[in-house]
Design a protein around this nucleic acid. Structure first.
Length: 778
DNA sequence: GCCAACGTTGGC
DNA sequence: GCCAACGTTGGC
């Protein structure tokens, strides 16, 4: 093959190396310095002067292999930059004269471009993409002139390239970095003689492959319109982005084997002249009109009716999507619209990620995501200007926070409960946001005053005026209401299981804006809620009442039959039965004392319902926040199975209104009247081991001589006994004692005292017992 | 580490 | 330009 080429180009010897090799290449690598053995071995070598072309021809072949290997290893870049560039220098010099309208600089750029394309072949598709992006975004003015010729080359390429390659082709104006510029792997192939002096170049190029030769021959066809087509062709092979699977052979076939060059395809060397002639004679129309856009374009072969761009578009439509290399985007659960991965370019990617980022907190599937209306009650809603808020929080309505992807859920450490099953509100609950009806946010610095109650009240006042607090109040639904009443403060240190059930309840409450008490698994925290609980049979309640010395640890359950008027908001919550709780030992309840001193009792009766709501300053009852923990003190020996059983039974039964059953350390079972509207507000029935019971009124034990004891069995073993006793108590009132005129001066408030043996509990209609009606003087 | 506050962005 | 709300910051 090369021999014949040599024959065709007898003048090749005339060519001086200086002409054949670009000046800069010569400087880097003097001609003749490195003569490849392959060239010498070749028959052709004898015809080639040492000074002549073999120098830049030889390395080419050698380098081509090396480059391919490097390409396959993906290390070509490193090689180019770090290693000596002898082969590069040696390179494939191109006669400066042979440029076909290209200036020297343009010629160099052509080399450069060639190299770039080579690099692209090596690189991954992603890197290609980046390159193209780079090139498009920051066009190199110096390279701009080359865009056109290369585009034409692409026309040649596109017909044979795979979808992959075609996809890369469009915008790859050969990003020209210096590193890329240093590697001339393919430059040899585009041998200058092939263009200028027609056959000379490849005559001496044993490494020239059929396809290349053919192209070169075509391009060097004298007298023809070489200004355009040759340029396309001789740049084509090196510029063509070859897919990793596409071999040079294929390339050659594609180029040579085109209908226009049938003979060339058969024998690249033998039919060179003929093919050239054919090309000239028949040849393809150099310029055709694109059917797509109407623009003139260079037809590559017969039947080409579309310009490069139009053809690319068409191929793009046809190309199977799985061939295209696309970024793998993480699949987010629940994405619907956004699941569609754009096929487009980087712009699509950016758009995609932009939207993705925007919707990062939404799964689009859960109820919350589908909800399109704000509740107007949560803190976030209340923060919104449209709800009169100050727009400080700027968050989405709580009910619209995605159950799966909302950021809130991850903030809160709801351990044990799968976050995927938690709504933000639930999460909030788990993180004590709701159950912990304390003031949210950063706690103030503890200022210990003389009177801790003042601290509490002052704090409450402030919170009342605090806009945020109001938001919170209304926001956290029931919890907020609790908070609204301020005095109630409780905290759950709950176990996972409990967290789950509490959430459910609260969630239900929030959703329906009404209190739904799920047996013992509910959270009640306000008068409002309490009012809505009418008819509920039983809830487990944890309750602490002032003046109960034995109730340092209280936990219990008692039925509530709220048939009466308004409750006072004492009911703060219901939790599983005490036995469960005690067994788990995890519940920690922070509660408040609700007891009031007897002297205030009467006056407060009128406003009892609002004592926790309306005006905190009117609240004279000291409120103590305490933490009762079952985790520590109670032991197995403290439990009395009988009491527990009774306790459980009571919890499942209907007790007289506002009577609450609690179990305390001792163990003792206590029945408390929660409502201060009741005359039994300060009465406690305490059942101890063996079901013996004791009644206390305002911390004073009801004397055993009281008739009450005689009307009921000594042991309250059954629910009926307890209920009977409570009903009996409800018919009684508390003795008011007698006024002690002697103890105080006329201008001082008159104090009532009781007789030492006061009955304490008397019929409701009576004011005082017999003992107090006849006080003993002195 | 939590969370209130707020800068910022995207949609309209 | 306004609104919604995401993401970050800094105090605690």
């Amino acid at each position: 093959m090369t021999d014949e080429l040599n024959e065709l180009s007898p003048e090749s010897e005339i060519l001086k190396p200086e002409d054949a090799v670009p000046a800069y290449l010569n400087e880097m690598h003097p001609i003749g310095e490195d003569v490849d053995s392959d060239v010498e071995d070749d028959d052709m070598s004898c015809k080639v002067t040492v000074e002549l072309l073999p120098d830049w021809l030889k390395p080419m072949e050698e380098e081509e292999v090396g480059v391919d290997e490097l390409m396959s290893a993906g290390r070509i870049n490193r090689r180019k930059t770090k290693e000596k560039p002898p082969k590069v220098k040696r390179g494939r010099g191109r006669p400066p004269k042979i440029r076909h309208g290209l200036s020297r600089s343009e010629f160099k750029k052509g080399l450069h471009a060639d190299r770039t394309m080579k690099k692209k072949r090596v690189g991954s598709l992603m890197s290609r993409k980046r390159l193209s992006r780079k090139a498009t975004s920051v066009p190199d003015p110096s390279l701009k002139a080359e865009v056109l010729p290369r585009t034409r080359q692409r026309v040649v390429r596109s017909s044979t390239s795979t979808p992959q390659s075609t996809k890369q082709v469009p915008d790859s104006p050969a990003g020209g970095t210096s590193a890329e510029f240093n590697s001339p792997p393919r430059l040899t192939r585009v041998s200058p003689p092939s263009i200028d002096t027609s056959r000379r170049s490849f005559v001496h190029s044993p490494s020239v492959k059929v396809g290349n030769v053919t192209q070169q021959i075509i391009s060097t066809e004298p007298g023809k319109d070489v200004s355009e087509l040759p340029l396309q062709l001789w740049l084509c092979p090196s510029l063509e982005p070859i897919s990793p699977t596409q071999t040079q052979e294929i390339l050659s076939q594609q180029t040579v084997g085109s209908p226009n060059f049938p003979e060339a395809s058969l024998n690249g060397t033998m039919t060179v002249k003929e093919s050239l002639t054919m090309t000239v004679k028949e040849s393809l129309p150099l310029l055709s009109e694109c059917e797509g856009c109407g623009c003139p374009f260079s037809a590559q072969k017969h039947g080409d009716t579309l310009c490069y761009r139009c053809r690319i578009k068409r191929e793009k439509k046809r190309s199977p999507p799985n061939i295209l290399c696309r970024k793998q985007r993480p699949q987010r659960y629940g994405k619907t619209e956004n699941d569609i991965v754009p096929d487009g370019g980087d712009d699509d990617d950016e758009e995609y990620w932009r939207l993705k980022k925007r919707n990062r907190r939404m799964c689009q599937r859960c109820d919350a995501c589908r909800r399109d209306t704000d509740c107007g009650k949560c803190d976030f809603c209340m923060d919104k200007p449209k709800f009169g808020g100050s727009n400080k929080k700027r968050q989405k309505c709580r009910l619209r926070q995605c159950k799966f992807q909302s950021k809130l859920q991850f903030r809160n450490g709801m351990k044990g409960v799968p976050t995927s099953s938690l709504s933000p509100i639930k999460k909030m609950i788990k993180s004590n946001k709701l159950l912990k009806i304390k003031k949210r946010g950063r706690p103030r610095k503890k200022k210990f005053k003389n009177d801790p109650w003042e601290e509490e009240e002052e704090d409450y006042e402030v919170s009342d005026n605090d806009e945020d607090d109001q938001e919170l109040r209304s926001s956290e639904m029931n919890g907020s209401q609790v908070r609204k009443h301020g005095k109630w403060s409780y905290t759950f240190k709950e176990d996972e299981d409990d967290a789950a059930y509490v959430e459910d309840v609260v969630d239900a409450n929030i959703e329906e804006d009404s209190v739904i008490l799920d047996n013992e698994r509910s959270v009640m925290a306000s008068n409002e809620m309490y009012n809505t609980t009418s008819g509920l049979s039983s809830q487990g309640l944890y309750y602490n009442v002032s003046g109960m010395p034995l109730s340092s640890h209280l936990i219990g359950s008692a039925p509530i039959c709220n048939s009466g008027a308004v409750a006072m908001g004492e009911v703060i919550g219901s939790v599983p039965m005490a036995d469960e709780m005690s067994q788990n030992g995890f519940l920690q309840i922070e509660m408040v004392k609700v007891g009031s001193s007897p002297s205030h009792y009467r006056e407060e009766q009128q406003n009892t319902q609002q004592m926790h709501i309306a005006d905190p300053q009117q609240e004279h009852t000291p409120v103590i926040t305490q933490i009762f923990s079952l985790a520590g003190p109670e032991t197995e020996s403290d439990r009395d199975p009988g009491l527990i059983e009774l306790f459980t039974s009571l919890g499942q039964s209907v007790l007289p209104a506002h009577w609450v059953c609690v179990i305390a350390k001792g163990p003792v079972l206590q029945l408390l009247q929660c409502s201060k509207l009741s005359t039994m507000a300060d009465t406690v029935v305490q059942i101890e081991k063996g079901f013996f019971y004791q009644v206390t009124v305002q911390n004073q034990p009801l004397l055993l001589m009281h008739s009450l004891y005689s009307r009921h069995p000594t042991c309250l073993e059954k629910v009926e006994h307890v209920v009977s006793l409570l009903l009996d108590l409800e018919a009684l009132g508390v003795c008011q004692g007698y006024q002690n005129f002697q103890m105080c001066s006329p201008w001082e408030p008159k104090m009532c005292v009781r007789a030492a043996l006061c009955d304490l509990l008397i019929p409701k209609d009576d004011e005082h017992c017999g003992k107090c009606s006849q006080p003993v003087e002195g």
